[in-house]
Design a protein around this nucleic acid. Structure first.
Length: 342
DNA sequence: TCTGGGGTCCTAGGACCC
DNA sequence: TCTGGGGTCCTAGGACCC
């Protein structure tokens, strides 16, 4: 099992289009206007990171920290196109490829020498797309995914059952793929701070604290286990959503209604374009300063009718207390899955 | 650091039914 | 009404990931 991870993907694509910016601090995000409030960086080059800028940072903060940085707008179609070229290169090899977002893929192959295969994949991707990637080798997706991070930049690393304990045991639990800051903190509260401690924990006690599925699963992760099957068929989306953070808070009822109607129209059009039927509509409202609430409604029957989606979204919006300023509105839908009846 | 947008899965509690 | 024990559906929220 291999995990292919493009190095600094968005920044690398932008530098291919703007070679004159190589070596300069570059920040990509939003419409590229660093004075726009409530917009964050999608990525930052190493030169910008040296000034303390990182992805997720508000552009206005990035501008303060690095006034000489070049700010570029985010251009998803360009990243999509670059991703397609990379995946096409991978599919040219006699391997099974499972695409995992723009800049990642898992690959399965029967080989005695995964390091050589990884080196060939890296060389081919670089030669045909000018993009650098790192490759992790593991017994399963979890191990391969962590290994590719250790391989960065532009390298190959192997993490299997053989060296798992040696490489991982001393690390904090949030080093595992699927355990974030919150769970890691709760685990630490139970005296489980390292991967080794979590691996040795009592599954029943974990289940009591984190639920019957999640608790024991965390211990599995600490033991280096994980999904090992490559799925080459395209992913079938469960649903789809659209949301907007407004540069200034909204308070006017008619404006809120208008935005929700627009968003509902978009998700309905998206569903139609994908040929999917809608069974549930949800509305998300983020109040100032940052309180987020959702309400949802199951439709009496699956539909593709934009009018039904919009009417339902407006109904759901009506169930909120809208007496506080609103900074974000979102509308999401859930689809029927193939094989389910509408 | 006044904190994007788009996803997935799990959990808990209430309603309802037998 | 002095009120057991499920099972299922639905909703809201939390956590994680890219």
């Amino acid at each position: 099992m291999l995990h292919v991870d493009l190095d600094q993907f968005i920044a690398a694509v932008e530098l291919l289009r703007h070679p004159e910016l190589r070596g300069r601090p570059v920040v990509v995000g939003g419409s590229g206007d660093p004075t726009q409030p409530r917009t964050v960086a999608a990525t930052a080059t190493y030169e910008a990171r040296a000034h303390g800028v990182h992805s997720g940072m508000p552009l206005r903060t990035a501008l303060r920290r690095c006034p000489e940085a070049v700010f570029l707008p985010s251009d998803p179609p360009a990243y999509e196109a670059a991703s397609e070229r990379v995946m096409a290169v991978l599919r040219g090899f006699p391997i099974r490829v499972e695409v995992w977002g723009w800049d990642e893929a898992f690959a399965g192959a029967a080989t005695d020498d995964p390091e050589s295969l990884a080196a060939e994949l890296r060389a081919a991707v670089l030669a045909e797309t000018e993009l650098s990637c790192s490759i992790g080798i593991g017994d399963n997706k979890h191990q391969a995914k962590l290994a590719s991070a250790f391989a960065k930049p532009a390298g190959v690393f192997r993490l299997t059952g053989e060296n798992w304990a040696e490489v991982m045991n001393h690390r904090p639990t949030d080093a595992l793929w699927g355990i974030g800051a919150r769970i890691s903190k709760r685990l630490a509260g139970l005296g489980l701070s390292t991967v080794a401690e979590l691996a040795a924990a009592d599954p029943a006690e974990l289940a009591a604290h984190f639920g019957p599925t999640n608790g024991p699963w965390y211990r599995y992760l600490a033991l280096g286990k994980g999904e090992a099957e490559i799925v080459t068929t395209p992913w079938v989306a469960r649903g789809h959503s659209r949301e907007t953070t407004f540069p200034r808070d909204l308070t006017d009822r008619a404006e809120l209604t208008g935005h929700v109607a627009d968003l509902a129209g978009q998700v309905a059009a998206d569903a139609r374009a994908e040929g999917r039927e809608i069974v549930r509509v949800s509305v998300k409202v983020r109040f100032t300063p940052f309180l987020t609430r959702t309400r949802q409604s199951k439709l009496p029957a699956a539909t593709t009718d934009p009018e039904v989606v919009t009417r339902t979204a407006l109904n759901v919006l009506g169930r909120f207390d809208l007496d506080r300023p609103v900074r974000l509105l979102g509308v999401g839908v859930e689809y029927t899955l193939p094989g389910e009846s509408g």
